[in-house]
Amino acid sequence: MWLDTLSLLRERGRGHRESGGFLLGRLRDGKRTVEAFLPYDDVDPNSLTGAILFDGSRMDTVWERCRRDGLEVIADVHTHPGGVGQSQTDRDNPMIPEVGHIALIVPNFADRTYLPGDIGIYEYRGRRRWIDRSGDGGRYFAVRRFA
C-alpha cells in the first residue's frame, strides 16, 4: 500500500508540484493501521497548484468516506520538492488540527521509494506546535510486507 501511495503521489505531482492525501485506517491498541489512501485532489480537484491549497470546506467528503468504510484519518502525507522539513505553511495549517495527528512529508516529489528514516514525520501538539518524530521513523511509521 505504501508503494502504491508513493506511486500515486509521484503521478499526481508530475515531478514538479506537491501532491498529497489522507491515510485512512483504524486505531487499535494505540497503533494506527493504514488501509486506504485518499488523494487531496480527489477531494478538492483544485488543491494541487504547485504547493497544496486544500479547501477545508471539502472535508465532508473525507468524513463521509470514513463513515462509509468504518475508517478514520490516521495521518496525512504530502510531497516536497527538496527535503523533509516542515514549511511554515505546514506548521501553521495542519490538515487535521487535533493533538496527536501525524503528518508525513516525502522528499523530491516522491521520485523513488522512501521508507521511514527517509521521510519527515511530525506529530501535532496543538496551537501550531509540532514534535519532529522523523528520527524515530520505525517507531511512528513502519512499512510491513505481507505474503
Rank of each mutant, 00 (worst) to 15 (best):
45 P>K: 03
97 P>D: 10
96 I>S: 07
146 F>N: 13
138 G>D: 07
77 V>P: 00
17 R>L: 12
131 I>C: 05
126 G>A: 10
88 Q>C: 08
59 M>N: 10
136 D>K: 07
67 R>W: 10
73 V>P: 00
114 Y>E: 00
84 V>F: 11
119 I>F: 01
38 L>P: 02
5 T>R: 02
135 G>T: 05
127 R>F: 09
62 V>C: 03
44 D>G: 03
115 L>T: 04
95 M>P: 00
48 L>N: 04
107 P>R: 11
135 G>K: 07
29 D>S: 09
79 T>F: 07
121 I>W: 01
82 G>E: 14
12 R>V: 07
43 V>D: 00
90 D>V: 05
76 D>C: 09
30 G>M: 11
124 Y>H: 05
55 D>V: 06
12 R>H: 14
88 Q>L: 14
65 R>D: 05
45 P>M: 06
139 R>I: 05
44 D>S: 08
53 L>V: 11
10 R>S: 14
142 A>N: 08
68 R>I: 07
41 D>E: 15
147 A>W: 15
94 P>C: 07
92 D>M: 13
129 R>L: 13
139 R>H: 07
9 L>T: 04
30 G>T: 09
111 D>F: 07
139 R>Y: 06
145 R>C: 07
55 D>W: 08
84 V>G: 04
80 H>W: 09
82 G>K: 14
28 R>N: 10
28 R>G: 01
67 R>V: 07
115 L>F: 12
28 R>C: 05
115 L>S: 04
110 A>M: 09
123 E>F: 01
9 L>A: 08
12 R>C: 07
40 Y>W: 03
56 G>P: 06
145 R>K: 13
147 A>S: 12
63 W>N: 09
123 E>Q: 15
67 R>N: 07
34 V>G: 03
41 D>R: 03
69 D>S: 11
92 D>K: 13
88 Q>H: 08
55 D>M: 02
48 L>E: 03
16 H>N: 13
141 F>E: 01
72 E>C: 10
93 N>Y: 15
58 R>D: 01
129 R>V: 10
38 L>H: 05
145 R>P: 02
93 N>K: 11
83 G>Y: 13
145 R>D: 15
19 S>F: 00
124 Y>W: 05
123 E>R: 15
24 L>K: 02
19 S>L: 04
131 I>N: 09
27 L>E: 12
11 E>W: 10
36 A>P: 03
18 E>Q: 13
99 V>S: 05
26 R>N: 09
44 D>I: 06
93 N>Q: 12
110 A>I: 06
13 G>R: 01
21 G>L: 04
9 L>C: 06
16 H>G: 13
30 G>H: 08
99 V>A: 11
92 D>G: 15
23 L>R: 04
119 I>R: 00
